[in-house]
Design a protein around this nucleic acid. Sequence first.
DNA 1: CGGTTTTGACCGGCGC
DNA 2: GCGCCGGTCAAAACCG
Length: 164
Amino acid sequence: MTERNPVAANSSSLDSDFSNQQWSFELSDYLSFDDIDWQQIDLTTDQSFVYQANEVSDESNIEWSSNHTRDTNNIHMSGGVNIWKKEVKKRVAFKTMTEIEVLDDGYRWRKYGKKMVKNSPNPRNYYRCSVEGCPVKKRVERDNDDSRYVITTYEGMHTHPTSS
DNA sequence: CGGTTTTGACCGGCGC
DNA sequence: GCGCCGGTCAAAACCG
């Protein structure tokens, strides 16, 4: 977790040259899920139920593109996964207070695993983007010590437009 | 019939 | 090594 570089947030910059940028950290350095510094990112709702955890202490370095809206039954998430260069392994986690397990984030996902993690009564679910060849994965699990929250962790960047 | 979920097996890294 | 642990595979079941 030594060196981090800024990255553009808008998806239109996906083809920019990121070749000099590297991230030398692992998720576990930051997201042990014990001592996460969750940051409230959704101030638009009356109840502040969306949080984001990331590896950045210097927030000015990275512009997260995240957009959350809520209708009666769903919480919609967009952005947040469109900010990375293809081969860069970078993860970001969202923590959302909701009864709904799988949030609508504009993509179709195929579940490929489910695990019980130690010291947690809740299972962790593994999803991969349904689009052929797209490397994006996400994990969904309930917060260990506040099960009202769902933690969604994204890894990688989509190689295609939203939906499909 | 095609895509998705389910679920135990499998695998690789790591600590002892 | 060996066993634990987290992540993935894959075959069968499931479902529109």
